[in-house]
Design a protein around this nucleic acid. Structure first.
Length: 290
DNA sequence: ACACCCTCCTGGAGGC
DNA sequence: TGCCTCCAGGAGGGTG
């Protein structure tokens, strides 16, 4: 599933190819992938417009098409790819829901097996991405900022890291990986972390994202880059999808539990469980009360 | 404020 | 082989 590194990879690839291309035609085969427009309205709005840039905010792709922005969220299985010439395979493919015909007979295909992804057309991107939280690879995402995010709430660590309003761009895979690297249990309370814990988690998040980006993303099944190529970071995953296999750090079997309806992978030795209520001292309990 | 559950979808995997 | 059931999950919504 595309998370921040995958979306960044796609954005960079499309930014090399799309700017300067003019939309000549729009075909929508499955209307519900358009968040708020009819196919006719989309076509009327963007035919004749020229792409200016492609960028990313969290897991959203921002395609600048003045005076509009075409914003795409790929969710689980969405793919967006550019071809210099029409591809017969994709022109009629049952999972290709939108085809943009561009000048020079180039094509931008939007494909999505599970149909969770959405396309938005807006003049004001903030309406779509305005509520998102901190951007983990931005320069202003410091350990202090992460500390504020974590300690400002009393939540289990993993669901908080997945909450796009708090921190934007992480998904299930990279949260599990970052928590393993930091040695933090997914159920630890966010307001219980020490400064050292926060600093380690901050470094781990960035390290995991940078590594995945360098590998062109993680392809478990559906993800493809802007030219259709797979990523290679799946070979570097330490815990995600490795239940029952030995921890790369200590050899203990990786455990899989469900947290917030998500498969969650961690090392029970390297990522010690938070204390239960019974195990907490009176001081701990007193500290939890307002 | 936070945890929990449901919905959207489909292909792949497992059981028999 | 084939049919059935279950599962994966990002995000938004509702409920307790």
């Amino acid at each position: 599933m595309p998370e921040l590194p995958e979306v960044e990879h796609i954005a960079r690839g499309l930014h090399e190819r799309l700017p300067g291309r003019t939309v000549r035609g729009v075909t929508v085969r499955w209307e519900r992938c358009l968040a708020a427009h009819t196919p006719q309205a989309l076509e009327q709005a963007i035919v004749g417009l020229t792409f200016q840039s492609v960028s990313r905010r969290a897991k959203f792709l921002l395609l600048e098409l003045p005076p509009y922005w075409l914003i795409v969220h790929l969710r689980m299985t969405g793919r967006l790819f550019f071809c210099e010439t029409p591809q017969p395979e994709w022109e009629t493919h049952p999972h290709v829901h939108v085809v943009l015909e561009l000048d020079g007979d180039a094509r931008l295909y939007y494909r999505d097996v599970r149909k969770f992804g959405r396309l938005y057309l807006t003049r004001a991107p903030q309406e779509i991405v305005g509520g998102l939280g901190a951007e983990p690879l931005a320069p202003d995402f410091t350990a202090e900022r992460l500390g504020d995010i974590l300690r400002g709430r009393r939540r289990q660590l993993k669901p908080l890291l997945l909450d796009q309003r708090a921190l934007a761009g992480l998904g299930n895979i990279y949260v599990d990986e970052a928590l393993w690297l930091a040695g933090l249990h997914p159920l630890v309370r966010s307001d219980s972390l020490s400064d050292k814990d926060v600093a380690r988690l901050h470094a781990s998040i960035r390290q995991v994202l940078h590594a995945a980006l360098a590998h062109g993303g993680t392809t478990l099944r559906d993800y493809r880059g802007p030219d259709g190529q797979t990523g290679t970071h799946q070979h570097a995953l330490a815990v995600y999808g490795r239940a029952q296999t030995p921890c790369l750090r200590c050899g203990a079997p990786i455990r899989r539990i469900v947290v917030g309806q998500r498969g969650t992978h961690y090392c029970p030795a390297c990522q010690p469980a938070p204390p239960t209520l019974e195990e907490m001292s009176d001081d701990d309990l007193a500290a939890r009360s307002p």
